[in-house]
């Protein structure tokens, strides 16, 4: 009798929960989507309407002129290629470095644990800044105009290592002790036990790292004199900050800026964003799925 009562009670409040959840979700989706739709609409509207602020939600007029203009610029394609390289190589390298750092830290008996922890902690707060880092990267390591200048300076972070470490610590210790007793080396344990079981945290890290590398552009500003190495982010940024407050220059005074270029630069801001984000948009759902799959497998294994 009580079971039945519980079930009815349960299903009622379950539906209430559903209603609340769906309402919140709807709100979140609308609030999130509106500005995004605005961005897309601005990019495909008639340039004049776009610059006049006539676009509220849906495009006014239709013009793919700004896309044509953007794609005609070689810099975009080169930027795409570079960004893909940096993202793929960077994510793999960072993931490796992070896990390699996280595992030893998770071993409670590791003699270097405290040392390592302190090292990580102190550097989280104190850094030399741009100039000394530049000297190290360029003078000491000779990485000027090298692709690795985009990856190595940000190879891993205490943040990520701590997250990964905590995750590994949550894995059952008996598993590792058994492996040890069986005579497995630390290398073995790392590759055959830890990594397979860490799919969930590695997925999260992958997503954060990939997004980070995809958007990164500032190291290129400093270390790449050769513009063929510039990532997409540089191009986006250049388009976006034109004429905005952060952009200071008094070469506005001499010479005349044509109306066309003014109009297109107003619209280009939005177009480049769409171009830069689109690939990520298409890839993310796959990753998300993989992450969930990996997690289920991981937890079934126990």
């Amino acid at each position: 009798m009580s079971k039945n009562a519980n079930r009815i009670k349960g299903s009622k409040s379950d539906y209430v929960l559903d209603a609340i959840v769906l309402t919140i979700t709807a709100f979140v989706i609308i609030v999130t989507l509106y500005p995004l739709i605005y961005v897309v609409s601005m990019s495909i509207s008639d340039p004049l309407s776009a610059s006049r602020g006539e676009v509220i939600l849906f495009p006014k007029g239709f013009s793919i002129l700004s896309y044509k203009k953007a794609m005609a610029d070689d810099a975009i394609w080169q930027g795409y290629a570079n960004t893909v390289w940096y993202t793929v190589v960077g994510t793999i390298s960072s993931l490796a470095a992070t896990m390699l750092g996280a595992y030893p830290l998770s071993r409670k008996s590791f003699v270097g644990r405290k040392f390592f922890n302190t090292l990580l902690l102190v550097q989280m707060f104190f850094g030399g800044g741009m100039i000394p880092t530049y000297i190290v990267v360029v003078k000491v390591l000779g990485l000027y105009n090298s692709r690795w200048a985009m990856i190595l300076p940000a190879l891993t972070s205490a943040f990520n290592i701590f997250i990964a470490r905590n995750f590994i610590l949550s894995l059952p210790e008996e598993l590792l002790d058994c492996a040890k007793i069986d005579g497995a080396s630390e290398f073995r344990i790392f590759t055959n036990i830890i990594i397979p079981l860490s799919k969930s945290v590695m997925s999260v890290l992958t997503i954060y790292l990939a997004i980070g590398y995809w958007n990164s552009y500032f190291p290129s500003v400093l270390y790449h004199g050769d513009s063929s190495l510039h990532p997409l982010g540089m191009y986006v940024r250049k388009m976006v900050i034109q004429n905005s407050i952060l952009n200071m220059g008094d070469d506005a005074m001499g010479g005349m800026i044509s109306a066309e270029s003014l109009l297109s630069s107003l619209q280009l801001k939005y177009t480049v964003i769409v171009i830069a984000v689109l690939p990520l948009l298409l890839i993310y759902p796959f990753f998300s799925k993989y992450m969930k799959k990996g997690l289920m497998v991981g937890s079934i294994k126990g």
């Binding site: 595992y103 008996s109 390592f116 090292l119 100039i131 190879l155």
Partner: peptide, 25 residues
């Protein structure tokens, strides 16, 4: 623990080169 040290070599090198060396700044 030598194996653990080997495993942590890369992150350690990174920290020293890119975080501690520039700290002199």
């Amino acid at each position: 623990d030598w194996q653990l040290w080997v495993l942590s070599l890369i992150p350690l090198l990174y920290l020293i080169l890119f975080r501690y060396l520039p700290m002199f700044g």
